[in-house]
Structure formats: structure tokens, C-alpha cells
């Protein structure tokens, strides 16, 4: 079946919130112990997009974060690096230089992040700037206002336009699920973004509460699954914001594993947008290694 067949997004599958929450509750009863826990935690660390998206960011701060991305915790051998760093377009160049020669990617937010309330030419310029500076990945936001007005074509076209601009640069599409209000809307937004060419769909900017939640993420994973069944094409997923503990990262991985299966268990197809998660994972791995809990003071906060 051709991907050119675009469905009518008004008729995206409906979602029952109570059912989703029950499924999550059941997934969260999975007990991940011993070697499956260690493997899961290392994988989670390797899936992190280490993020700094603050008004007070500086080149110095970004360079420090990049060092952390490459050396999460040198005291522990065999630790993977994180997947990427995620920064504003103006810091792409700095990050790119700091990460030169490594496999860690540089992701840049764009399209007038976080609100997305800018004309298309500004969004295009924003994205171009990031790509020209060497961004490997673009994290764009959708126009939530237009989406809630029911202008699905507008949202679709915007994503398709940015995707065309991206070329080989991977595009993540942020819905800001905390502003979309219902799981039905989140499913619809997922379908729109996927069919418009998103390489990844992403929950949140981290600027709005609630950010990523498991119910929202499950609905998005199910949209990815339906698309895969229909077209054979994989789309990635990135929950962002609010995931700060190892336990919750493992719960997301269980959900991923039991919904999309082992092929998605790689940072090519799944990311955590987080800043403090890395240190909590390190804390847990340290504990498994040394049999004692360290305080946060023993692990670098960059």
C-alpha cells in the first residue's frame, strides 16, 4: 500500500481513556530485575536526548552539557553515551564543535519553539538556520491553535514543508500533548504527523505541564504501530519532559517493548527527552556495581 494514501484525519481511531490507563497500570506491574534491569537502564541512558532549552543558556553551559553527553560518568566503565543533545538553534554550532568526531547527535528545536506561533517563513528560516549550522535532527512544534480549530490540513502542510526542508536530517514533531486535551486529539495529531513525514513523534516541549505521560505515549505508540502494520515503515517516538527516574524510564521501555517490539529498542527509534534522568540512571547503575547508594553529589550535574 502506498503511503500517498492520506486518510481523513477527522476519522482517526477513537481512544478510550479508562482503557488506556488500565493498560498502563498493568504494564507498570512488570517487575524488571537483575540483568534485565541493568540492560534496560544502559539502553535508556543510550536513548537520552540530553536537553538544555533555557533562556539563560550560554555557549559555556552547552559545552559542559556536551562533555556530559560523551562522558556520562567516567567512574563507571562500559557506560554508553547518550543519543543526542537538544539545544536552541543558536547553540547548534557550539554543540556540533564540542561533539566533533563522536556519534552523539545534535538536535535543534525549531519552528518558533516552544509556542510555534510564528508565520511559516519565520519557521522555515528558523529550521534552515539550524540545518545550516549542522543540526542532525530537527525538533519542530505543531501549531496547536490551528489543530484545535480543526485546520488539520494546515498542520499537515506545515509539517510536510519542514520535512521537505530537512532532507536527510531527521525530523521530530512535537505535539505539546499537554495542550491537546484529549487522547482522541493526540491520536489524530500522531496520524497527521506520521503521514506528513515525521521521522519521530514527540510528546512535549517541556515548557507545559503535564509533559510526557504514559497514557499519551501509549496512544502515540499505537499510532506508530498501526502505520507500521499498514506500510511497513517505522517511525520513532520521543517522550519528553517529566521523566526523571530510572523506574519511570524502565516503565516506558516495557511499554515500548510490549507495544512495538524489540526492533524499536534502539536510540534510532526511541528517545527520552530529559535532563536529570541520566544522573538517576547512573545512580542506579553505580548501586548495582558497588552495592551502595551514592548521593547525587558524587555524580556530575552538567
Amino acid at each position: 500500500m502506498s503511503t500517498k494514501q492520506i486518510p481523513d484525519f477527522r476519522f482517526s481511531p477513537v481512544v478510550d481513556q479508562v482503557g488506556v490507563e488500565e493498560r498502563i497500570a498493568r504494564l507498570n506491574t512488570r517487575s524488571i530485575k537483575k540483568q534485565s534491569k541493568t540492560r534496560g537502564l544502559k539502553l535508556a541512558l543510550n536513548m537520552i536526548d540530553l536537553t538544555s532549552l533555557e533562556g539563560k543558556d550560554t555557549e559555556g553551559k552547552i559545552r559542559q552539557m556536551c562533555y556530559k553527553a560523551l562522558h556520562p560518568h567516567d567512574a563507571l566503565p562500559d557506560l554508553p553515551t547518550v543519543a543526542a543533545v537538544c539545544v536552541y538553534p543558536v547553540y547548534v554550532k557550539t554543540a556540533k564543535e564540542a561533539l566533533k568526531g563522536s556519534a552523539v547527535k545534535v538536535a535543534s528545536v525549531s519552528t518558533a519553539f516552544p509556542s510555534g506561533n510564528a508565520p511559516l517563513n519565520v519557521k522555515i528560516a528558523d529550521t534552515k538556520f539550524a540545518i545550516d549550522n549542522g543540526a542532525d535532527e530537527i525538533d519542530m512544534v505543531i501549531s496547536r491553535g490551528e489543530f484545535l480549530k480543526g485546520n488539520y490540513n494546515f498542520v499537515f502542510d506545515e509539517i510536510a514543508t519542514i520535512k521537505a526542508l530537512c532532507g536527510p536530517v531527521r525530523l521530530k514533531v512535537i505535539f505539546e500533548t499537554g495542550e491537546l486535551s484529549s487522547l482522541d486529539n493526540i491520536r489524530r495529531a500522531s496520524d497527521i504527523a506520521i503521514y506528513a513525514g515525521a521521522d519521530f513523534i514527540k510528546t512535549s516541549t517541556g515548557k507545559i505541564q503535564p509533559a510526557a505521560t504514559m497514557p499519551v505515549s501509549l496512544v502515540m505508540l499505537q499510532a506508530i504501530k498501526d502505520y507500521f502494520i499498514k506500510t511497513g515503515k517505522m517511525v520513532g517516538m520521543k517522550p519528553a519532559g517529566g521523566i526523571s527516574t530510572s523506574k519511570s524510564a524502565l516503565q516506558y521501555l516495557v511499554m515500548l517493548y510490549e507495544t512495538l517490539g524489540p526492533a524499536w529498542m534502539t536510540n534510532e527509534w526511541f528517545r527520552f527527552g530529559a535532563s536529570s534522568l541520566a544522573n538517576d540512571i547512573i545512580l542506579q547503575l553505580e548501586k548495582d556495581d558497588k552495592k551502595v547508594y551514592y548521593s547525587g553529589d558524587y555524580i556530575g550535574k552538567d
Binding site: 517490539g261 524489540p262 526492533a263 524499536w264
Partner: peptide, 18 residues
């Protein structure tokens, strides 16, 4: 599960948790 990509399979059989 229906996915392929044999080289990248992350088989996460959960350790026993009795």
C-alpha cells in the same frame, strides 16, 4: 512481534521475578 531487523533485536526476556 512483527518487526524484523534481526541485527538490532534487543531481546528483553524479563529475568524471573518470583
Amino acid at each position: 512481534m512483527q518487526t524484523t531487523q534481526a541485527d538490532k533485536i534487543f531481546d528483553w526476556a524479563y529475568a524471573p521475578a518470583p
